[in-house]
């Protein structure tokens, strides 16, 4: 068995193409950043990050506990009670398409961009 065969290069190109296809939604540019927080599959909070003036934190009321902090144009998990702390280590989300998830608490934060006529929604 060789190290690299012709089919391997096909596999590499196929994965790269799949990658680009999945990236298409995040290429969209716009002036507003909307964060959606989903708890157990239910969209619970929709926050317009562009209009946040003062940073604040809130608890998602889940077990294990997860705390989310919102700043102007940024959102992140500031505290989590789970063993792996993957969501906290993800760091600040600031760009369209970025996602942070805390699987034990079933909380997902994802960023989308929206046109400027989007209704301002806060929780």
């Amino acid at each position: 068995m060789k190290l690299l065969k012709k089919n391997d290069i096909l596999v590499i190109s196929a994965v790269l193409i799949l990658c680009l296809v999945l990236l298409i939604p995040s290429f969209k540019k716009s002036d507003r950043l909307i964060a959606t927080v989903t708890v157990d599959g239910v969209q619970t909070y929709v926050i317009d990050l562009s209009s946040v003036e003062k940073a604040y934190s809130f608890d998602t009321n889940t077990t294990p506990k997860a705390e989310i902090t919102v700043e102007k144009n940024a959102i992140y998990f500031s505290y989590a009670d789970c063993p792996d702390k993957l969501c906290v280590n993800t760091g600040k989300l600031t760009k369209n398409g970025q996602t942070a998830a805390c699987l034990p608490a079933k909380v997902v934060v994802s960023l989308k961009s929206a046109k400027s006529d989007f209704d301002v929604l806060t929780y």
Binding site: C19, L20, L22, L23, P25, S26, T38, D40, G41, V42, G97, Q98, T99, A101, L103, K106, V107, V108, S110
Partner: peptide
């Protein structure tokens, strides 16, 4: 686990 399929786009690439 999270019930959120948008993870495919967020983490997939």
């Amino acid at each position: 686990l999270s019930g959120t399929w948008s993870l495919v786009f967020g983490y997939g690439p």
